[in-house]
């Protein structure tokens, strides 16, 4: 029981991180119907930017850890947002009316570019960061086994919740969100009604990238090691989460992320840590087979 609880805590933390990345996938897919393959790399860029910003603030700027983290958060969101904007502008915008596969190939190309850009500029070796946030409290104790909930996990969960709430508010209550939803349903009609579709799409990329950047920051702190290759696996898992929750659905992305995180944590806790990635994919395949529209997605009726 205690062991189970610990795995659930770890899983939920991991799930929050996946969920944040998944939002970017689900929004972009919802609005232009493409898998933004480079999104995982944006998350990786976020992790690197966070690390650099944190070190720059604490080592060069002499800030303490808390201020350093705040600076890293703002800087990461800002820079990844900019990257998100730039990627859309350079690699996708001109291909919006192109054959279906063209933007996908362009996105894969972009993903290769970003990975190798980071490898060239920062080297291929893993970058370790000693723990910054220490401590936590023990929820339960059974013999020698303790169920820990660290401050870092609490912080990650709270930040995730706050971002989610803020983001949901933007989508449901603001004119920007309305334009976004309208474009998602019918881009042509939205354009006719005077919505600047290009801008809406750009904003979607910017928001998605900023959230992925935050996820990158969290992972840097949580695991303490990053390399230029982390974007790929996290990217497919987050996409899996988006599909699992129902692509195009925001709560779905969160739920999907949470489930993938839990499955991964429980699987590695109880079965084998080697095959944890396989567990996540198996779930994806099962869901697609039995509920192709995802858990919270709308089933699409085939129009003949």
């Amino acid at each position: 029981m205690e062991y189970f609880l610990q795995q659930v805590i770890n899983g939920v933390t991991l799930g929050g991180i996946y969920g944040l990345i998944a939002i970017g996938y689900t929004m972009v897919y919802g609005i232009i119907g493409m898998i933004n393959f480079a999104h995982g790399e944006v998350y990786m860029l976020g992790a690197f930017t966070a690390l650099i910003a944190f070190l720059a603030a604490t080592l060069l700027g002499g800030a303490d850890s808390a201020l350093g983290l705040a600076i890293a958060l703002v800087a990461t969101m800002g820079f990844t947002a900019l990257w998100g904007w730039a990627i859309e502008r350079v690699a996708y915008r001109r291909l919006r009316k192109a054959p279906r596969l063209a933007p996908l190939i362009s996105a894969i190309g972009m993903s290769v570019v970003l990975q190798n850009f980071v490898q060239v500029t920062q080297g291929a070796r893993v970058k370790p960061l000693p723990p910054v946030v220490h401590g936590g409290f023990t929820l339960m104790q059974a013999g020698t086994f303790k169920v820990d909930l660290s401050w870092l996990q609490i912080g990650i969960l709270l930040l995730t919740l706050a971002l989610m709430a803020g983001f949901t508010w933007v989508i449901t209550k603001t004119p920007l969100g309305r334009a976004q939803r309208a474009t998602q349903q019918d881009a042509k009609m939205a354009a006719l009604l005077g919505i600047d579709v290009d801008r809406v799409i750009s904003t979607t990329f910017v928001i998605g990238a900023a959230l992925a950047g935050v996820a990158g920051l969290m992972v840097t702190l949580y695991y303490g090691v990053i390399d230029f290759y982390i974007g790929f696996l996290a990217g497919i898992k987050a996409f899996t989460a988006a599909v699992l929750g129902g692509i195009g659905s925001l709560p779905g992305a969160m739920l999907g992320g949470l489930l993938i995180g839990l499955i991964e944590a429980l699987w590695s806790g109880y079965f084998s840590i080697e095959y944890k990635d396989i567990a996540a994919f198996s779930v994806l395949i099962l869901v697609l087979l039995f509920r192709p529209s995802g858990l919270l997605g709308r089933p699409d009726v085939e129009k003949v």
């Binding site: 690699a91 001109r94 933007p103 190939i105 362009s106 190309g109 972009m110 290769v112 570019v113 190798n116």
Partner: peptide, 13 residues
């Protein structure tokens, strides 16, 4: 590989 990615994007564009 960096050039490879760039070529991929450019040809698609």
């Amino acid at each position: 590989m960096l050039a490879f990615g760039i070529v991929m994007v450019l040809i698609m564009l």
